[in-house]
Design a protein around this nucleic acid. Structure first.
Lengths: 230, 230
DNA sequence: CAAATAGTGTCTCTTAGACAGTATTTG
DNA sequence: CAAATACTGTCTAAGAGACACTATTTG
């Protein structure tokens, strides 16, 4: 009886399932920014988080990578070494007026260098800067659709908690050797000015190892390079 | 065209969706324990986390409450004031041999008093004690089915993190006035003996307010009662 | 009284937080 | 040289961790 295993499940209703993705990065000015894309369809000029419907038997991490490839022209190799992290499941049955859709929200951090060229080449993409944990949307419009404001709030919480005590845990810097000033720029962009700079240096340098190299850019004493230990 | 809104979604495949629930509580000996139920069906005598398939347009929190009602005979009012927290989505398409099932895992903490009478009345229920973050299963059997071991590991992480610095944040105690010794029993059951008892007292009492009452049980100096401030 | 439980005093060591100082470069 | 950036020394206050001590009950 080839049908037996499936028939058991068929008595239950099945929702549509989507993934939504918060891509955190840095803006040109070094602020924390989120990748948005322009929705085509009912309301023109509306921006949203990238999202897609799940494919048959697809893994969520794959669906996230596919979403970024399809909607944001981001090559899958740009994610190498990074795994999208689950945030929450949006389960309001009236969230999507097309029907019953569960949306599984994820976040991932990517270095600006990987995103900037793609965003410049496509005008349906935007890196939206943030202020005090809120996205500044590119259009005159108050909020993200489909309850995505809630997703963004939760992504901020996770980001801030991840960055609170550790040096660039999600890899916004995009390289594994860096100066303490570069690390400080990223840290303060994410969590705000929570510590004085000398406290920051001491707390973070304790968790890093010096490479021995120094690097010079602009005036001022050259900075020592650090890397994560191990 | 009444069908238009739905037809858009119908081009996408839909997975079955289940909820699984980790109910944390205390055992008779004051250890951390998890609520399990005996599966009926293919393999007899196998124990698992309570879980159910999602109903049409059902909220996840409601599905969790229904799961505990259906599978564990737990009246919904026993959850009052407590919201199940999402842990992770299990997305391996081969996890369930009946077909493609996404499972959304949750955890919730309940006081022993609410569970003990129900568990005693039903022999398909068990409060499984834990040792060093592992469940001690009631049957001679090595592991939970359907990748539920992973769910339990994640539930432990969350529980330990929640209880690390705060007094009974999930309400395992089940009352809002308690002595520091009672709080310590719960704390150490969840996170292990991380601090000496006097350090524990100082850290926690700073976050509580004394009610003025004292309570006596057994020999020894009577203990002061505390409650959460506010 | 001894045993048991609850709670405090105090010392040491680490670290956050603040602030002033030194070090090394560019132009 | 001044300006800019990268660090370091040092003081103070708070808290963790350890240990001994006091306090209040039962039997």
């Amino acid at each position: 009886m080839g049908l037996t295993p499936r028939s058991d499940l068929d008595q239950y209703p099945r929702p549509s399932v989507a993934v939504d993705v918060v891509v955190a990065t840095l803006t040109a000015r070094g602020q924390l920014g989120l990748l948005l894309h322009r929705r085509i369809g009912d309301r023109a000029g509306e921006w949203a988080l990238p999202g897609r419907m799940l494919r048959e038997r697809e893994r969520l991490a794959d669906a996230v990578a596919r979403t970024l490839a399809d909607k944001c022209h981001l090559p899958t190799r740009a994610l190498r070494g990074r795994t999208p992290r689950q945030l929450l499941v949006m389960d309001d049955p009236d969230r999507d007026d097309r029907g019953w859709v569960l949306s599984i929200a994820h976040w991932i951090a990517l270095p600006r260098e990987d995103l900037a060229p793609i965003v410049e080449a496509h005008d349906d993409l935007n890196i939206a800067p943030t202020r005090q944990g809120r996205v500044i949307l590119p259009a005159r419009q108050s909020r993200l659709p489909y309850g995505q404001g809630e997703i963004v709030r939760r992504a901020y919480e996770e980001l801030r908690r991840a960055y609170a005590d550790e040096p660039d845990p999600a890899g916004l810097l995009g390289r594994d050797e860096f100066t303490l000033s570069e690390l400080a720029d990223v840290h303060f962009a994410v969590v705000g000015d929570d510590w004085p700079i000398d406290t920051f240096r001491r707390k973070m340098s304790r968790q890093l190892s010096e490479t021995g190299e120094v690097v010079q850019k602009g005036p001022g004493r050259p900075a020592a390079m650090y890397r994560r230990p191990g």
